[in-house]
Design a protein around this nucleic acid. Sequence first.
DNA 1: GGAACGATTGCT
DNA 2: GCAATCGTTCCC
Length: 186
Amino acid sequence: MPCLGPVPRSFYDRDTIDVAHDLLGAFLVHDVAGEVRVGKIVEVEAYLGELDLAAHSSRGLTQRTRILFGPPGFAYVYLIYGMYFCMNVVTEREGNACAVLLRALEPVRNLRDRSQGPGLLCRAMGIDLRHNGHDLESPDFFIAPRDENEAHQVVARPRIGVAYSGIWAAKPLRFYLEGNRYISRK
DNA sequence: GGAACGATTGCT
DNA sequence: GCAATCGTTCCC
């Protein structure tokens, strides 16, 4: 069971790949009208800022990406293909537009719908555009730290759906818990 | 103003 | 393999 309470902002104010690793096994917690939904993060992807051609921030500062360019510890949520939402956590110092995409959860509490894949994750957790820019240092929507006593192995693979991004497409920036049944794909 | 496209998903 | 579906980006 997760120990309740958000990780401190300093957790997000670090190298993005380190944050991505430490998010694996952590708990995403969202209070939806009194129902507290909890999932264990089992798959993530790192997006490394303006130089990363797969990252939204590679287009520079726009109305959509302003959250990415802001301080760490905030949610960046966007609409994809007109019908799903994707949630990221903003990392690194303000102006360094890095983030980690949450791709799959293992259900822990009150997760009735499938949450493997970024679109399904947001649907199951009740996350939508209202949560764009949400401060994750808040009691109703946050990430709680993983249990350090539980050992796990991390697998690194190329990211999903970014074939257009040149050399960035092949970089092993997708991370998941080895052997976990809730990862979105092999 | 408008065309092209996307960090997805599910159905054929 | 391909359609659904719409906001963002970029070009005219």
